[in-house]
Design a protein around this nucleic acid. Structure first.
Lengths: 334, 334
DNA sequence: GCCGGTCGTCGAAGCGCTTCGACACTCTCC
DNA sequence: GGAGAGTGTCGAAGCGCTTCGACGACCGGC
């Protein structure tokens, strides 16, 4: 493995064929006889040949690398991001692509740089905000891109995400079915609503519409993430609405605190208050009691994003919007 | 930005110089007169030139990309990993390098592939285990690498991590100073100790040694991560040792549950039981009460790993082992 | 028995960059 | 004023791969 790497011409010499023949065996872009193919593949194995990525990129104008751009704000749901990232890498490998990781602190310059230098063939952006400054840049780029999340003006882009409105509605529906007619949504911290993060707003809209549709009472509140603030919010809520019997929590960092607060306020889950969460499965399972939840399908979203970006690379048409249907897992909290 | 990209020869023509001159302006490897340099830089700006990454990698035998390899096991400390990753990317950019993200599910094949194809110049591995199957491969690779974490046999490698033994000891010292003489460590889930994860063991060793050194009583326990299991562990612990007045928690997922359990058992923090955590700062600050903690310096570790790998790339000698000194932040829980 | 058409392979021309050796200058310093 | 030592710039040779056009060899059809 040390010393100079094996090149395609060494493989060609070893197999007794032309360099181009080796290339065609590898790419399959021209027919090669079975015997020749065998000999070439044997030589490749014998010599331990790996095509040089730079040379390949230069000649074929394809780097076989896609960029994965981290969100602008660190604040959010970090474990979920990691699962997105991991899912994107795994999915990309299935298309024989690697993944270059870009952070937001380089701003749009990083995106411009990797695109202009042909370091990447395409881009996937995580956790897009409603008013995302990276979006205008994507529109002028020649390289295809896919967004995870929805900006305010998604026309002409390709976006994929969990259908958070449906998720909010699904939670309401579940509580309504269980007979609860006075419920509340504890959502993201208020700063998240203010800066216009799509998924937080969409969950709230889905919640509000579903509450109306079912003719039940429901309020939507922001929810901070320290225990003390969560405790106060929950206490005040129960004080104001003694009849409240159902809670939807869409805040991964606060969900444990909500349960602790209820415990401390002597409300039993699900007997006094039923709780549905929108959060990753492991958080829901680790809680006490385990929570009925709509899971965040990070793997599926990542996979879908890669599939879409590969379709675009191949010149195939793709839908502008892909919304994944939420799945509710019923556990002990409702 | 669409259409064919600007090449170095177009820049050369525009500036009225040779291609090689443009290259030398960019690399600084030969002296160029101020006037020529100005003209070339102006042309670069005017045309919006970005060097083609593939061509550059091919000619210079440097891709200016490093690989960041995710841990074998998911599950663990995910938010911390994300901060490592982000820190590594940011640090790498300062050395004009990009970061390729590799997951473990490709196994060692992924590492071999990106190294052999010259896609990356060097590797950084996150969260290395005591018996890590990637380590033998690194030894035979020509490309330099740095590990975050320590395998069982680190000789000949370059490893960097927080000094977890010192962190464990620091927590003990802090509690001893506060007059506590009967304390306990709640560590990682037992499966983590069993599979030989270095940082969990090292914290425990530091704890045990410091307890002996200070002549106080201290037990080290594994700690699972569901609320109910944590609750039982804490309850039994307090039952067995009525004199226990200090707790060190080295388990990010369980730390919230520990506090909730203490609350439920009517033990006040810090009045009845003092708590020190080893966890990221945001978790410590979000708890109630905010926790005295040794923070996991993800940014610093990531930065250091990149610095080391760049030193190795430049052929400079580096220490085999780099241990970062833990910092204790005193908050309301002790 | 000759023509047109596949099929399988080859050689060569780039892809856009770095780097080496060469060369024309301009300064010293005797 | 000429040798010697820098400077600053150029041209050309690759780096290892893909891809295009060409070309024998072989086929079937008349």
């Amino acid at each position: 493995m040390s010393g100079r790497a094996v090149t395609i011409s060494e493989v060609a010499r070893h197999a007794g064929v032309a360099v181009s023949t080796v290339s065609y065996v590898l790419s399959g872009k021209r027919t090669i006889s079975a015997g020749t193919r065998r000999r070439v593949l044997d030589s490749i194995n014998a010599l331990g040949y790996h095509p040089n990525a730079g040379a390949r990129a230069l000649a074929s104008r394809r780097s076989n690398v896609i960029a994965l751009v981290l969100p602008l704000r660190a604040g959010m749901h970090v474990p979920v991001l990691m699962r997105f990232a991991s899912a994107v890498v795994t999915a990309a490998r299935r298309f024989d692509h690697d993944v270059l990781l870009l952070t937001a602190d380089e701003g749009t310059a990083g995106i411009r740089r990797v695109a202009a230098s042909a370091l990447v063939d395409a881009l996937v952006l995580m956790d897009v905000e409603l008013d995302d400054r990276r979006v205008p840049l994507l529109r002028e780029l020649a390289e295809p891109s896919v967004l995870i999340g929805f900006p305010a003006e998604p026309a002409g882009l390709t976006c994929v995400d969990l259908d958070f409105a449906a998720a909010g509605a699904r939670c309401v529906e579940h509580l309504a079915e269980r007979g609860h007619d006075e419920i509340a949504l504890l959502g993201a911290p208020s700063v998240v609503y203010e800066r216009g993060t799509g998924f937080a707003r969409r969950t709230r809209e889905g919640f509000v519409e579903a509450v109306d549709a079912h003719g039940i009472k429901g309020v939507a509140l922001a929810c901070e993430e320290t225990f003390d603030e969560v405790y106060e919010t929950v206490r005040d809520l129960l004080l104001d609405q003694p009849g409240l019997s159902g809670l939807v929590v869409h805040n991964e960092a606060a969900v444990g605190h909500v349960l602790a607060a209820l415990r401390q306020l002597d409300r039993r889950v699900p007997h006094d208050v039923a709780v549905v969460a929108i959060c990753p499965d492991d958080v829901a399972e680790r809680a006490s009691p385990p929570l009925t939840s709509v899971l965040i399908p990070a793997e599926e979203v990542g996979r879908e994003a890669v599939r879409l970006v590969m379709d675009k690379l191949e010149g195939r048409a793709v839908p502008e919007s892909t919304l994944l249907t939420p799945q509710l897992a019923v556990r002990a909290s409702t």
